[in-house]
Design a protein around this nucleic acid. Structure first.
Length: 487
DNA sequence: GCGATCAGGT
DNA sequence: CACACCTGATCGC
């Protein structure tokens, strides 16, 4: 959304007001400590966390948007030189701490920018946000455009609420009473998962020192620690979480306890780095429709198929479980959202993605614009997108539950093949067994690296570092001896 | 030396 | 298949 007036999660110069929906790095590309193109509007939590990511950021540029409030900005109209006003209302998007949804009203009409969001039907915060949005929309003629978090804008994405997924993680931990557990997380997000685990199992959760600082800034309960002796459950950075790490942890027994990994992820198709003769024969994208029973690691039985029709935990490595814990709305929630807002037009907001799901394909019938969406229109839109730098526009395969046979039949025509690498992988020359052996060699090399206590091993040992009794106030985050990773 | 960008990885 | 984000290389300033 750029018209010389405002930018949302975009940081090039040329706008008069900038909005940051949340602090994940795919939304801060172009933002830096030295950025100064204009005032930056964000939530109070984002403002609090921003200096961690951008230490020398000019804080006088920040403008706080409180949840549930409206602000009126006086800006210069880019076309004429007259003044124009933009009114912005802020809602909790329930994606990660500090994340917001923005409703803009101005000469350009009414535009709702969802940002990344998850509004679950069973979530109290989402319910409040929903009601606030409904109320805000009552004095409007309707929303002209919704910029939608279209990450899962396809009916194949049918995963449970976060609390249900968290319970699945808890069941996995409970069924491994003698194991250490590591959970892969990023620098922001999944805090509620950790809180639910800690509360139900009445245990503390280990986090790395920088993450503890974030937890403290967020004012979360005092259940996080940097002392490995206080708990068997550790949340570790996703980048240090892999089959290699788990294999290493389980190789050096009995020095350490046997360890399982839990990967909280909305991506149901996460595949492990495949080696021959191991558990899974196909990707999760296909296997989840086979109603296959999740295989349990180490022959420990896990009873977990309660959520019929919803994504269940998966084992994709001897020691790693995946639970469908997502901070993006699933298809059903997106559908409810569109039914509530009934926009005239709908656009997807994908940042770093090779897989763009056209939201109008499934939600077009819920919009109030020209109905129904014509095949040719969508086709044209895809073509436009592709020449317009969004690399590909793909409607993933779906089950045959679509009620609109006509659309379903012509689905193939919406697929736009991605150029470059993707094309190369389907070309006949590269599908030979020669490539397989290269792949195997690469895996061998990786395994060797671990065993030779190379880079990965050092990173792993950093994770195990004990910080006995450390509280965040005691920590010196800039002590190079305490930094994670190779020095 | 720093920031921006890209490639390659989990 | 890629939620988000890491490291490392390179390049321009």
């Amino acid at each position: 959304m750029e018209n010389g007036l405002i930018s949302v999660d975009r940081w090039e110069s040329g706008s008069q007001a900038y909005f940051l929906t949340h602090l994940h790095s795919d939304h801060t590309q172009g933002l830096s400590s030295s950025w100064s193109h204009g005032p930056l509007f964000c939530s109070s939590i984002t403002a609090k966390l921003l200096p961690i990511k951008f230490p020398r950021f000019d804080l006088s540029l920040l403008r706080i948007l409180h949840i549930g409030t409206s602000h009126t900005l006086s800006l210069r109209s880019p076309s004429s030189s007259s003044t124009t006003t933009v009114r912005v209302t802020t809602f909790d998007s329930c994606h990660c701490p500090g994340s917001i949804m923005l409703l803009f009203r101005g000469d350009f009409g009414t535009v709702l920018y969802t940002g990344d969001f998850r509004w679950e039907s069973n979530c109290e915060k989402a319910k409040i946000a929903k009601e606030a949005l409904s109320a805000a929309l009552q004095d409007d003629d309707g929303v002209d455009v919704v910029y939608l978090d279209n990450t899962y804008a396809n009916p194949t994405y049918d995963f449970p609420s976060r609390s249900v997924a968290a319970q699945q993680a808890i069941d996995i931990i409970s069924s491994h009473p003698e194991h250490d557990v590591i959970i892969g997380i990023n620098t922001l997000g999944k805090e509620d998962l950790l809180l639910q685990i800690a509360s139900v199992l009445d245990i503390m959760i280990w986090v790395w020192p920088e993450r503890l600082q974030t937890m403290d800034l967020l004012g979360l309960p005092d259940i996080f620690t940097t002392d490995t002796t206080l708990t068997r459950v550790r949340a570790v950075p996703l980048y240090s979480f892999g089959a290699d790490t788990l294999e290493a942890l389980n190789l050096i027994r009995p020095t350490t306890r046997p360890t399982i990994g839990i990967l909280p992820s909305g991506l149901p198709w996460i595949k492990k780095s495949l080696k021959k003769g191991e558990f899974l024969s196909g990707s999760f994208l296909t296997s989840r429709y086979k109603r296959s029973r999740p295989q349990s690691a180490n022959n420990v039985e896990v009873h977990m198929d309660k959520q019929i029709g919803k994504t269940s935990p998966k084992v994709f490595h001897q020691h790693i479980y995946s639970v469908p814990y997502s901070d993006h709305s699933n298809f059903e929630e997106l559908e409810d959202f569109i039914k509530l807002v009934k926009p005239t037009d709908l656009k997807g907001i994908v940042s770093i993605s090779t897989c763009f799901i056209e939201p109008m394909y499934y939600f077009g019938r819920l919009c109030t614009g020209n109905q129904p969406v014509q095949v040719q229109q969508l086709h044209d839109r895809f073509k436009m997108k592709e020449t317009d730098e969004i690399k590909g526009a793909v409607c993933p395969e779906t089950s045959s539950e679509d009620d609109d046979v006509e659309l379903n039949r012509s689905k193939e025509s919406y697929k736009v093949k991605e150029s470059g690498k993707r094309v190369a992988t389907v070309s006949p020359e590269t599908s030979s067994s020669e490539e397989d052996s290269v792949e195997l060699d690469r895996n061998k090399m990786k395994a060797l690296k671990v065993k030779l206590s190379g880079f990965r091993m050092r990173r792993f040992s950093a994770l195990r570092r004990t910080r006995r009794g450390a509280k965040s106030s005691d920590l010196d985050y800039f002590d190079p001896d305490e930094q994670m990773g190779p020095s």
